[in-house]
Nucleic acid binder design. Sequence first.
DNA 1: CTTATTATTATCAAATTGTTAACTGCTAAA
DNA 2: TTTAGCAGTTAACAATTTGATAATAATAAG
Lengths: 229, 229
Amino acid sequence: MDLPKKKILIADDEEDILEIVQYNLQQEGYDVTTAKNGDEALTKAKQLKPDLVILDIMMPKRNGVEVCQLMRSQPQFKDTLVIFLTALSDETNQVKGFDTGADDYITKPISTKLLVSRVNALFRRFQKTPEESGQGLLEFENLIIDPQQYVVKVSGVEVMLAKKEFELLHMLASRPGRVFLRNEILNQVWGNNVIVGDRTIDVHIRKIRQKLDMDCIHTVKGVGYKFTG
Amino acid sequence: MDLPKKKILIADDEEDILEIVQYNLQQEGYDVTTAKNGDEALTKAKQLKPDLVILDIMMPKRNGVEVCQLMRSQPQFKDTLVIFLTALSDETNQVKGFDTGADDYITKPISTKLLVSRVNALFRRFQKTPEESGQGLLEFENLIIDPQQYVVKVSGVEVMLAKKEFELLHMLASRPGRVFLRNEILNQVWGNNVIVGDRTIDVHIRKIRQKLDMDCIHTVKGVGYKFTG
DNA sequence: CTTATTATTATCAAATTGTTAACTGCTAAA
DNA sequence: TTTAGCAGTTAACAATTTGATAATAATAAG
């Protein structure tokens, strides 16, 4: 995965379950946070903006259904996936669960393998497109860098950059003002195990400067380069 | 329902189940078709292009898992939802089911209410607008792409494109300006597990360019292709 | 002024894509 | 049944672009 890890928040009052589920989801490469009750779940959800929330129904301080309802009433959680987790295999409760806006419903005792499968299935289907998930373009005073279109616009005029040039510029511009060491640049743009000569970066910087025809990449002698919008 | 009814295909060898499930889903406003075995399911799926397929695992002539695998290997069913339905509550089978690309897994005996809830939950989450699901026609300055009729018009003149050519053009044109990686193209147009040579995409691009006789597909070297209206 | 570092330029090799023709399997007409 | 034609794919080669390097000039730091 080149993309950032998916964030999952698990809320359950049983420590054992939290631990086991957390461990198993982390093994799958997810970024997992836990909460011990409904209130904590809500608070952490607001902070983290997780992609998925797994809610135990029976919890102290707001049960899972309440938490789900509250989340669904807030637009920021519109796209947050919700899975209910509960000992109640009773069908009426499951139907209620789905009606409050849950995306899945898993009954205890939990098979961790199955839970992981279901979580994967949800994410597999719910792949946001890059621009939806804000993988978006970098905008500056008279420079726009659009990784979707692989295009750079200088004062409205499209400028074609070659792949490496684009990636290098994109890296520098992703954190304006910050100085990138030559080593960092090599690692990110060329990859860890590629060996290229010392002057290669300079030449690419030169080409970018020439094509953009503006003074946005600054040399920090002995250190590296930085970008200023 | 605001949009045309969602189409659901149910495949099971037990008449009773087919009837009950069909009835209940129809009550919810879905357009339901049935199949009695795996082969029939595949045939009808190709005709109907359903939004959701509910597959019994144990069926004569291709079981549900086979049907799912076959569907998943074809790009046209990329966005088709799949629910497995089975008496096997055995966890290993469920995990396998999800791994073949299922979106949900319901065990018999079925509670129809619950099934309906799960179906609703799936559609609630993954409902796509017509143009997202590739149904709407794309119009540009002097180019019209109509996926309904599988027809392209350049400056009012109908141009015949072969299937792959059409799908490739349609994919690129569905997001003008956005660059599609060769890999993305392969996955969407050729399918996940189809292996074709490196030059195949180029040749198809070439043919499209030739037939359309206009400069709308642009190469981004080292990255992919993009369309501009 | 000397040295270390970066800028510039031209050149060449490598990677990528374009183009054409040929081959395969399938379908439909003769 | 044969044949012709088409879609899809591949192979082979041409054309193009990109990326890396070397050589040299310029520049800033001490």
